[in-house]
Structures are given as C-alpha cells and as structure tokens.
Design a protein around this nucleic acid. Structure first.
Lengths: 241, 241
DNA sequence: GATACTCTGTATCCGAGGGACACAGTTTAG
DNA sequence: CTAAACTGTGTCCCTCGGATACAGAGTATC
C-alpha cells in the first residue's frame, strides 16, 4: 500500500528529499543529477512561473527526452518539491552577536529574499507538504534563537509560523526588482476612483499616501511582529522575577 | 490591444468582477447565471480542490455542455477569480461598540474562517491579481477601523496586508474541522526522530509541546500583531501630546 | 574474457483538460 | 414578417503528464 496525497507519492517524495544520494553500481552511468534537474527547473520557473514549467521544457534544457526525467523524479509534483528545497537552500548563519530579535529580523529578511527571487515558491508551498531538510533547518534557526526567552516550545513554533507567513506573504506582494515600481496607486487606486463613496476610508488612506514612497510593508509588519513578541517575552520575564 | 497577464484577460476579468450585471435583450434567455456558475465551481473546489475543478465537471453539475460556460466566463482562470469573490463574500459588519483592536481581531478571525472553509482560496490568491468588490470591501473595513488612530494611510494599508497574510497563512496550516487533529507531532515530529543532532532546538521545542494541546497559532500570532500595532499607536499618541 | 543481469535513455501511445470555431435554434427589434 | 443578435451544442485541436515496452550500456559472476 502506498500512501498518496494529491497525486504525490509520499514515500517516494520522502526518499527524494531525505534519502541518501543512492548510487547503484550496475548499468550505464546516469547522465543527469538531481541537482542539475532541480536547477534547470528553477531557471525555467523563475522565468515563466510554475505554469511555464513543463517536463518537456526541463528535458529540452538538459538535452534529454522528457521521459528520461522520470528516471530521477517520480513526477512533476515531486520535481517542484525538489526545486523548492534547492531554491530555499541552506539557512544563512545567524548574525554574530545578535540577540533573539536581531536574529529573527535577519532571518525573516533572508527568507523574504529567497522567496522574492523565486516567485513560484509561494505557489509551491500551498497546502500541507512534506518539508525537506533545508526547510527544517530554517525552522531550527528560529527555535534556536528563541531558546531561553521563556517562550514555550509551542509558542516558539508559533513564532516561526508567523514569521514564515510574513516573509512569504510579502514576497508575493513585492514586485520583482526589475519592475518599474508599480506602487499601490496602480494596484487598486484606479479601482477606487469613481467609487469613493463605497470605499471612503481606502480613498482617504490612498490620498494620504505618497505614491513615490517605497513600499515598506515588510519592515512595518516585521517591526510590529517583533514588538509584539518582545512585549510577551518581557512580560514573562518580569512576572517570573 | 488587450492586456494579458498569465493567460488572464484583464479587461474581461474587470467587467466580470466589477461590471454591472449586463442584460442584453435580444436572443434566447440565458439558462445560467454567473452566481450559479460560481456556486457550482465552489462546491466542486471545496470538495476536490482546484485540481478537481474542471470545466467539464462544472458544466455537468449544471446540466450543460462544457462550452456553454464560455458564454458567461472567459476561461478557467477568470472562473476561479469569480469563485473567490463569491466565496469570500461581503465582509461582516464590525462588532458594535468595539475599538480598533476589537474590530481588527474579529475581522481577522472572520477572514480566517472564510479561507478555512475554502482551502482552494489560498492557491487562488497567489500572485498579483485584480481584486474584486468584496475583496476591497474587506480592506475598507480594516482601514476604516484604523482611522483616527494616528497611523498614516500607508501604515493602515500595511496593517491590512499583515492581517490578511496571517489569516490566510493560518487557514492553510489549520486542518479542516473533520480531520482528526493531525497535530504538529505527526507533521514533522517523525522527521526529527533519529535526527535530533541536526535539529536540537526543534527537538526540544517538540518535547516541550503537549501533543494533545489545541493548535493556537492563529490566536498567538494575532495577539502578537495586535500588541505590536497597539504599541505603535500608543507611542504615536503620547509623543504628540 | 564470455555471459547474464540491471540500469539508462528513448520512442510510442494514451487520456485528460482547456479552449477555438462553426452551426443551429431561439428570441426580440423594427 | 424578417433580420439581427444571442444561446447552447458538437466537433476539432493542442498541450501536457505519465505508462509501457524496448534497445543499448555497463557491471558482476563464472
């Protein structure tokens, strides 16, 4: 019996992400590697999104037939999971000498950067998934930074969920570097024009906003979140002493 | 010239979401309505996800041919956008007599509920989109709640982004009601077992966590965020006075 | 070294799904 | 009553993921 979820074979995915690089000795030597396939897929998805990612295109960019890929990867869904692991990569080392807040601040921005560099990563992380080693390593960093702050284990994990969500959410909102700063005005400013009576508060908020100002939603949200966490940690420590 | 983005005709999508219910007078009367189509799609997607949503199935559930749908909806992508607008629905009225914090707290939980009832909604909201009237109405509520708190227009919008992200993010993590409480342990506890040396902090956090405890990530994150916002508002008002 | 076994890449085929297009029937404007 | 406009349908095509069978390449065993 093989456990399947949404067309993804969990067992095969597990050994793909977590298994040791198996090297059978019989037969012709493989022309490809998992890493090369993942890189090729990432390049394509970076350029044209997940919709542009077809087995055919990946195979072409590696000069093999489409079906050759299935010798390495069970299917498209598993390929995307592998691409995600590769694109997220190892977590960066925590900044030297930083306290928990400095560590989490840096951590969130770094994760944001990775997500922004690979816009398809957001779509690749919807729904329950089997996390890869890199993904868990990122989580580990958050929890490690919070060790000794007085938060419970569950709370430390909740913080991680909160920060991952913020980084991922804002990477989606953020325009890629090359885009000519679309701004909020272009976003829904034009929708509100002519409907100021239905959206008076939005209209006022947009009027109050300098259309040339840089989008600071990442910093703003991150600062609020960290302030909130800090308040909790402080309350805990003062109550205990 | 028609502007296209990712296979979605923006112009046609705009009139689909924002246009007045057009009623041409010539020819046979339509057998379907946009609302009925959207409801049918929602029912299917609720049950089988966006992957299970095919034009064929939607048509069958309405007793028409697949191609009949294209008389109402430009294509699948636009159908999903319409389904999203319908599924999100009108924002609930703000709780009577609540301050900004009470309003935002309630608002976030309500939005969370809508997302959780329609798991496909997360996937339907990735990437830049054209928001519908309902979506803007939800945003309007947040900004309206924050009017007079001393936050700038941009900051009010940043708060909205932050709260939407949290609600949406946690609706994804949250298991549907009928699921037998998978818990974090089942999630990656088994992955850490045997690798405690690579993930010591995660291991400690999981050991510290009662596996029977209910998942409080929504409340935790929301409380932190609102605490952070409150701190900012307080700082602003005290500085000005 | 010959042989059998196994692994790799390929060629071919299939089904599902989105959508274009032309047509026939229906309803209303003039 | 006729022409125009609109609706639903049948048919066709293309793209894509994936199953299967096969031919060649390389290795272990005798």
């Amino acid at each position: 019996m093989t456990v399947e979820t949404g067309g993804v074979d969990q067992g095969r995915l597990f050994e793909l992400l977590w298994g040791a690089p198996t090297a059978p000795r019989r037969g012709p030597r493989p022309t490809l590697t998992l890493a090369a396939i993942a890189r090729a897929g990432i390049t394509i998805a970076d350029a044209d999104g997940l919709d542009g990612l077809t087995m055919q295109r990946v195979a072409e960019s590696l000069d093999v037939t489409k079906m050759a890929l299935y010798r390495y990867v069970p299917g498209r869904a598993e390929l995307v999971a592998l691409m995600l692991e590769t694109a997220i990569g190892e977590p960066p080392p925590p900044p030297a000498g930083a306290d928990w807040r400095g560590q989490l601040d840096d951590w969130t921005r770094q994760l944001f950067d990775r997500f922004r560099r690979h816009p398809w990563a957001h779509a690749a992380t919807v729904g329950p998934r089997l996390p890869g080693p890199h993904e868990l390593a990122w989580l580990e960093r958050v929890v490690a930074a919070l060790a000794g702050t007085g938060l419970t284990g569950a709370e430390q994990l909740d913080v991680a969920v909160l920060l991952v969500g913020h980084a991922r959410n804002l990477a989606q909102h953020a325009a890629p570097d090359d885009a000519p700063h679309a701004g909020r005005e272009a976003g829904f400013g034009m929708l509100i024009r002519g409907r100021e009576d239905r959206f008076p508060a939005l209209d006022a908020a947009l009027r109050d906003t300098d259309p040339e100002a840089t989008d600071a939603a990442l910093d703003f949200g991150l600062a609020r979140i960290l302030d909130g966490i800090e308040a909790l940690i402080t309350a805990r420590s003062t109550r205990r002493s």
